[in-house]
């Protein structure tokens, strides 16, 4: 396993020896990873290698899976996210998430965004916040005249940008994206990728993707995950995307990024 030190980069999340168990089954073992600030970090690897599992560790969404257990530490702003004194609800406000299938609430476009702000006690002007979030998600021009319409009336790509806007509205520091384009057509995918380039100015992005070209196009850093003989996931290699795709050290990484495997 080779892990490049993230030299000259400020990191926001430090994953230290994280293992995840579903019941007795170890789904992911011994991951060390540092997520650099204001960069896009891609997690790639074949199905079942634990990359989504790791992503869900970063905002404690695994808490809801019965029998899931996380060992090790995830440091965020000097705190261990799994420390007893850390409130998972607060963690999820500061580390937002976008899912594989667009999942807007069956409410108006406006309400989709305002809800999270209101529930988290936002004191400012909600109308402005909605506008800013929609602009940041590059959706404002398309929906500004129909904010009262249902979020479900939008197209798949628009719904996904609405979900991104919803995540941005609570002003997170990190944005986790779990295969955000896998349910979208290539044009919508292109728009989301452009958007991610914009967003990394303000946010740190971690994205899980099955699309190797997408990882190569958008990310600065890439972590490659794979499974061992007992189907337990592990991180094989981590480094700048150019190196992972150019001269990976591990033959498994080379095979995967060159499309010979998985």
């Amino acid at each position: 396993m080779q892990i490049d030190a993230v030299i000259d980069e400020e990191t926001v999340l430090q994953v230290e020896n994280v293992s995840v168990y579903y019941g007795a089954f170890p789904a992911l073992r011994g991951v060390y990873l540092e997520i650099p600030k204001n960069k896009i970090t891609a997690l790639i690897g074949p199905s079942g290698c634990g990359k989504s599992t790791l992503l869900r560790c970063l905002n404690r969404l695994n808490d809801f899976i019965l029998g899931a257990r996380v060992e090790g530490r995830v440091r965020f702003g000097g705190m261990n996210l799994y420390d007893k004194s850390v409130d998972p609800v607060e963690v999820r406000r500061r580390i937002g998430m976008v899912f594989q299938v667009p999942n807007p609430f069956p409410k108006s476009i406006y309400e989709n965004i305002a809800y999270g702000a209101r529930i988290n006690g936002y004191q400012g002007n909600v109308d402005e916040l909605v506008e800013i979030a929609l602009k940041d998600a590059a959706l404002w021009d398309e929906v500004k005249d129909k904010l009262k319409n249902s979020g479900l009336s939008l197209s798949g790509g628009q719904q996904q940008r609405l979900c991104i806007a919803r995540a941005l509205a609570i002003e997170p520091e990190v944005l986790l994206m779990d295969e955000p384009c896998s349910a979208l057509d290539p044009i919508s995918t292109g728009r989301i990728e452009e958007l991610m380039h914009e967003l990394k100015q303000k946010y740190t992005i971690v994205i899980v993707t099955h699309n190797i070209q997408q990882a190569a196009r958008i990310s600065s850093y890439t972590a490659f995950f794979s499974t061992d003989e007992s189907r337990t996931g592990q991180m094989v290699e981590f480094g700048p995307t150019t190196r992972i795709f150019g001269q990976a050290n591990d033959p498994r990484t080379r095979d995967y990024v060159e499309g010979r495997f998985g």
Binding site: G96, I119, A167, I170
Partner: peptide
Amino acid sequence: VPEGIRQAGYAIGTTRWQVVRDQVLPI
């Protein structure tokens, strides 16, 4: 009610009861 709705709720920092009250029950 699709599981995605609950996940979406949790992911923006709501508690379990808030997700049930505001998102799941209306559906």
